[in-house]
Amino acid sequence: MRRPLVLAALAAVALTGCAAVPEPAPTNEGTVAGTVTVFAAASLTESFQAIADAFTAEHPNVQVTFNFGGSSGLATQIVEGAPADVFAAASPATMTTVTDAGLATDPADFATNTLEIAVPTDNPGGVTGLADFANPDLAIALCAAEVPCGAAAAKALDAAGIVASVDTYEQDVRAVLTKIELGEVDAGLVYRTDVLAAGAKVKGIEFPEASGAIARYPIAALTASANPDSAAAFAAFVLSDAGQRILQKAGFGAP
């Protein structure tokens, strides 16, 4: 029922994006109104707020409200019946939880994120690459394997054949960053967007093995949405050139 609408909206935005018309006239502006509630991964906080500003500038009748949090927690909330219109997850696995429950169809990847080594600005451990993670004298923080950033870190370390000497498995990427900002650990693995967001307090070091563990971010309008047209329009906007520019400025890669 709603699928054609989503496709129509996607097509509309895609077309206008390709044509590079500055002020596109969406086909179903009349129904893009009311409130859209977006459940989004915590790592999207800054960029999605910027996207919402651009989206409401284009659709003045819409209000976007957010619930940012860990993707798995958000997925659980949606499955338990939380009133969400759009879900933007930090991993395909958490999106699968929602699609398996029949609450979303055809999620589309809208961004990627790459792991970086993060160190305190003065790099007290003299970390230069992933190989340093095996040094037992350094204090190392990773995300726990249960959360997406931890799974990605494990994958990258495996691919490089490095057995890391880890001091703590943190509950999310922000907790890893906090430990680095405070200088409690010498290095950690976080996403490139997190390094950019942390500003001058941490230093990012790119490493080649990261290419084996790129995180994909899927988005979907939810079938139970009370405002399906606006939900579809928001999801489409994230995938549009305008949305993509904002995401890439924050350090995300193209899908």
Binding site: A141, A144, V166, D167, T168, Y169, E170, Q171, A175, T178, K179
Partner: peptide, 16 residues
Amino acid sequence: ITFAGSFPGVTQTLPI
């Protein structure tokens, strides 16, 4: 989890 971190057998308590 903030002060002690989380490492199985060392600091990973049941709530963590």
